[in-house]
């Protein structure tokens, strides 16, 4: 018996990869975004295993395709990477690259290697998702919020944001900008700033010390962006809160945040309009996003869940 999900490389995005469900009922795309100094392989390693091993307890994973976005977290400023993330999301949701799902003569190098393999599909039929979940860790959380802001600003620029809260206008907009309907789950989000990160964070957790690199961390663009009170973080916060006030129906502006109570790296907290964060006992900055046999909360909370509101108007 094979796992429900099938591992595939993501075309044209080195290091990014996907776990694609064989279930024909799959209707959800879940996109994971790692943090500063992390990687698509290491940060989410436990999800790779447990989404199939614990599928009986968390059934929605069977109906979800899972994407792991890889980016250079050290050198690129947040705005640039967020722009790439937005492109990645829009290339995936609601209609993903068909090359991901098929091995045929045109789409796969493997076919050229193994000549008799052709026309194999991960699952039957064309793929179009109904739901999107964005999941970020640390800097990844900041990128998600920034990507959503960028999308809204683009729509505003094109004068496509509905002036009235008519449901038909909203539905139309969500069809053309489906990212705005995403559920957002953020682990140890760094949107209020980070006191140390990258391999300082690594050393910190390996060795229980954390500050010896701080004087030189200014060399790194992303780290500068992550400092408490940084203009980039401030602007993302103000924009998100402003848009949440103006367009409260955009689910993607609301995030469920999860912190470990032993996190010594990011400043804990949430935006004004967000639901209160969850604090998990005994988890730290790195472990909070890694489900284990004895800590399955990350598997439980990462799911599509439309925001409850009194009225859509």
């Amino acid at each position: 018996m094979f796992p429900t999900h099938c591992l595939q490389p993501f075309p044209d995005s080195p290091g990014s990869h996907a776990l694609l469900s064989q279930e024909a009922s799959t209707d959800t795309a879940i996109i994971f975004v790692h943090g500063f100094g992390g990687s698509a392989q290491k940060t989410w390693r436990d999800f790779h295993r447990l989404i199939d091993e614990r599928a009986d307890d968390y059934k929605w994973w069977k109906d979800s395709d899972v994407f792991f976005f890889q980016y250079d977290s050290v050198t690129k400023p947040i705005a640039v990477t967020a722009h790439h993330l937005l492109s990645f999301v829009e290339a995936t949701f609601p209609i993903p690259d068909p090359r991901l799902f098929t091995l045929d003569g045109n789409s796969s190098v493997a076919v050229q290697e193994i000549k008799h393999i052709k026309d194999i599909h991960v699952r039957p039929g064309s793929v179009k998702y109904k739901h999107l979940v964005l999941v970020g860790h640390s800097e990844g959380a900041v990128l998600i919020r920034r990507a959503i802001i960028e999308k809204i600003k683009l729509l505003r620029e094109e004068q496509r944001l509905p002036a009235q809260r008519e449901q038909s206008d909203i539905d139309l907009l969500l069809t053309t900008a489906p990212i705005l309907s995403a559920s957002v789950v953020l682990f140890a989000p760094a949107y209020l700033g980070a006191s140390c990160s990258g391999w300082t964070g690594l050393l910190f957790h390996l060795s229980k010390i954390g500050s010896f690199l701080n004087p030189i961390l200014n060399y790194m663009a992303a780290y500068v962006d992550l400092q408490k009170g940084s203009p980039v973080l401030q602007s993302i916060k103000e924009d998100t809160e402003y848009f949440a006030n103006a367009f409260g129906w955009m689910d993607a502006l609301y995030a469920k945040s999860v912190f470990g109570d032993a996190d010594r790296i990011v400043y804990l907290g949430e935006y004004k309009h967000d639901p209160p964060p969850t604090f998990v006992k005994g988890q730290d900055h790195l472990s909070v996003c890694k489900p284990k046999m004895g800590y399955q909360y990350p598997l439980e909370i990462v799911r599509y869940e439309p925001r409850r509101r009194a009225s859509s108007a």
Binding site: C6, Q8, P9, I114
Partner: peptide
Amino acid sequence: MNRDEELQALNLNFLVTEF
């Protein structure tokens, strides 16, 4: 090719392209 073999071929695709 049965379904198991198809999945094994898909698995090999990652090894070929990424590795």
